[in-house]
Amino acid sequence: MPSACSLIPPVNPTVIVRDLTKVFYDDSRGELRAVDGINFDCRPGEIFGLLGANGAGKTTTLRVLATILKPTAGRATVMGHDLATAPEAVRRSLGFSSATTALYPRLTARETLDFFARINGCPAERVGARVEELIDRFGIGAYADVRVDRLSQGMKQKVAIARTVAHDPPVLIFDEPTVGLDVLNALDMQKLIAAFRDEGKTILFSTHIMSEAQKLCDRIAIIHQGRIHACDTLASLRAATGLYYLEDIFVHYVEQSRSQAGESPASTSCA
């Protein structure tokens, strides 16, 4: 499948998603297609943003890629490892940061980093040096030996990000990483994510904050009701819609999808 994004350098994708579908079954809601046949690729040194409202399917997509959920149909690979056949290899290749910091409250920041480095396969003899490196880089030395439950939200967020990259994975997944953060902490977070991109990591990033997507993402996929309705660079999206603000572009595609709802439009490919 040819790439839809010509500005992206022609290197091998680290994440490939093909016809990925995830259906939930619930007594009250019946059959719910949370992700409905989406396609996209991500490459090294790229921030790929999934932009959508609450319930659009962003988190489900990321959870499927992180092997927490099984896809109902379709396939995906991370660093060449298939989700279905090599889930452990997939997990070792990525760092996943959920919407909450999800840290162990009774561990210190240092112990947290040590634990996640070891459990993700970092060689035992390199764990100590790696932990010190992370403490320096994220500036958490002052509270490295304080239990996590005694840290502020901003400090916890830094520890959570450091934990995500503890084993230095090539692919990073951030699910709404700035939710609940104040402006300064959110800015710090954005800087960190941009720095990871500059190091050549592949970053999958979900958000419903337009300014954040506009600022960070190299390519943006607009996802609504489980389908990708547009996927390109911001400039291309502007050119395609004739609109300047990402918020207007987002609303344009959502309205378009609503008007086509009866016609069951196919998902836009972003590969």
Partner: peptide, 14 residues
């Protein structure tokens, strides 16, 4: 409840 299980399930541990 704390959300740490989700994180644990995305690690290299089986």
């Amino acid at each position: 409840e704390r959300g740490t299980l989700e994180t644990l399930l995305t690690t290299g541990a089986t």
